[in-house]
Amino acid sequence: MELARRIEAIFLGYGRTLTDTDDAEGYEIAMGIVLVMLDGARARGVIDDAQHAELTATFEETKRAPRHL
């Protein structure tokens, strides 16, 4: 919940809010792209499996921020 509030504060600074359906959808799409980028980094050997697992778990939780508001 604290993470969701911190992310929401950033959005509010831009005049947006994750409680808006369109803003939340855009945010979740962007976070999905981050997850695809992590997959690419692992495939290229930039990060190993353990790093990929840790980062993926972190970003998966971050992606769910709008649902916690």
Rank of each mutant, 00 (worst) to 15 (best):
Y27D: 04
R44K: 13
V36H: 09
L35Q: 06
A53I: 00
E54C: 02
D39L: 10
E61F: 09
L35R: 07
L69N: 08
V34W: 06
F11K: 06
H68R: 14
I7C: 07
P66G: 10
E28P: 07
A30L: 12
T21R: 14
K63H: 11
I29F: 10
A53M: 07
T62R: 10
H68L: 15
V36L: 12
E61D: 14
D39C: 08
E25M: 10
R16A: 13
I7A: 04
A9C: 04
K63T: 03
R44E: 14
E60P: 02
D48L: 07
E2K: 09
D20C: 06
R5D: 12
E25T: 07
R42V: 01
D39Q: 13
E25R: 14
A30N: 11
A9P: 01
T58L: 14
R44G: 08
G40C: 09
A53F: 04
I29N: 06
A43I: 00
D49M: 06
E54S: 12
T17W: 06
M1H: 09
G45S: 09
R5Q: 13
H68Y: 14
A9Y: 02
D23H: 03
F59V: 10
D39P: 00
E60Q: 14
G15A: 05
L55M: 11
R16T: 00
R5W: 08
H52K: 11
E28S: 10
H52W: 14
I7K: 04
M37G: 05
I47R: 06
R64G: 00
V46C: 05
Y27K: 07
R64W: 02
V46Q: 14
I10M: 13
R6Q: 12
D49G: 15
T17G: 10
E2R: 07
I33Q: 15
A41I: 00
D20H: 04
A43V: 01
T17L: 08
E54A: 14
G40R: 15
A50G: 03
A57R: 13
I47Y: 05
A53S: 14
I47F: 03
I33T: 11
M1N: 05
D20S: 11
A43K: 13
